[in-house]
Design a protein around this nucleic acid. Sequence first.
DNA 1: CCGATTTCAGGATCACTGATATCT
DNA 2: CAGATATCAGTGGTCCTGAAATCG
Lengths: 159, 159
Amino acid sequence: VNDTTRHGGNPQAVPERLRNQRTRLLSFAAMYSDRMVTERLAEVGARKWHYAVLVSLADNGPASQAELSDRTGIHRSDLVAVLNELTDQGLVHRTPHPADKRRNVVTLTANGRRRLQRLDRLLAATDAEIFAPLTTEDRAELSRLLTTLVTHHATPPPG
Amino acid sequence: VNDTTRHGGNPQAVPERLRNQRTRLLSFAAMYSDRMVTERLAEVGARKWHYAVLVSLADNGPASQAELSDRTGIHRSDLVAVLNELTDQGLVHRTPHPADKRRNVVTLTANGRRRLQRLDRLLAATDAEIFAPLTTEDRAELSRLLTTLVTHHATPPPG
DNA sequence: CCGATTTCAGGATCACTGATATCT
DNA sequence: CAGATATCAGTGGTCCTGAAATCG
């Protein structure tokens, strides 16, 4: 229908040398995946980072913003806006830390817990959609390979 | 050394539910990969799209900009700037198409061919660095899985 | 007149930087 | 004082939209 947009180019025309470039494959796969996740979340007024924060609070309990940044991978500077949005929606709570006046303690609300359940279902469906062309075994294998890469590069070099 | 930047967070602190999320793994892996590729290319004054254009011209011959966009996945609007940079460096050539005055014919120069060889070596080294934690078989497997995903999602839905 | 090609101006989003005020 | 925390303003890159100018 619309062939000038949604780039990635015409797959048939892409030279083999480019098609087989692993870093390029990784980039494009992530691009499609990110786009789909972002779209699905946008339909219910959420963003990727929202989910990350809600999960972190649900699974590891209340936390300061600095710790939330560590848990989710959200940059400290950007976490502020994310928490503003979540508090505006009544999904989390920012209260001053009793013993350390610099910190906030971020807590999940009952609404936040319900919201997380919904996002969980939504993201499970999106995952199924994105990885539909892979078998169950292939999906597990992909997760294994990506986990190896991520842990290797996320781990700070020894020192 | 600097633990507040280069996010991805503290890997140990990331909740298991997030760590195992496939779309997140894909995003982060691509992020690390892209960052490394971009850095290495920047050291020699190049960018990712430069390489894509040079490869396309070397492997599939001269082309119009519209066709180059299809071959490389570069958006038509952004291709202009990329070609400006490449022509400024004397790596490609823009000449008017003899039979169709709307088009340009983009050609690889001798310098462009030499440049491509250098970028090939550089990117091969970067690929080795990025995928170092994977065995040879694992890398092939990863390529296979990613290719399945990319072709599936790049191929326009039947119609 | 419709469609294709090149070009430019600008938007939206994202990771990141840098600075500031506050507090330990 | 050094160091940590939360916040805000702003940069640079990328993907994308929209429109103009030119031409088939």
